[in-house]
Amino acid sequence: MKDVNKTYPGAVPLHVLKGINLEIAKGELVSIMGASGSGKSTLLNILGILDNYDTGEYRLDGTLIKNLSENKAAEYRNKMIGFVFQSFNLINYKNAIENVSLPLFYQGVGRRKRNLLAMEQLEKLGLADRAHHLPGELSGGQKQRVAIARALITNPSIILADEPTGALDSKTSHEVMELFKELNRQDGITTIIVTHDPGVGNQTDRLIRISDGVIL
């Protein structure tokens, strides 16, 4: 990420990112920390191709991500990024296996193959027996593991986790962090965790602090 700037237009234009330079290597486990209003969320949106930036350059796996059409952005998000959210963001009327396989649905993968891959992923995360449960029937930790399975199913270049432990108690938080570490260590999955919890930040290889739109 080279010299990325982002300004929100308005009566008083808000310059939120003031030249962000950031390089995250393949296989790294990093965390981004910052107070609210620091530009942390905006950075996450840009990293996740959820939002555009004004100037600079953002390359993901060598691909320049800039001014993409909605369709192209959706395609890149689908293939290159696995999202894990604070509030899990599972679809509540779909069971675990359907939630996990949803990104593959949007790739046009057939139902049988989709369910097979989703089941594999759930097994890997120790949730095979919960495959046909609805999110409402799962505990917080289980929900977050289902969400992680959904993020992993497309073999993305990076996992972007937004406050992944924010809605969990300390014990489950610890378990989820262990899972991220294990996935990173064993499968070499590049993981970026956005958090304001120093306890979480300290468990990652590198801690990136952002304040007032610049990286410290």
Partner: peptide, 16 residues
Amino acid sequence: THEIGIRRAIGAKPHS
């Protein structure tokens, strides 16, 4: 809206 946002985030194209 939230659900559609999730679908969009995980790769649903507008036409889907």
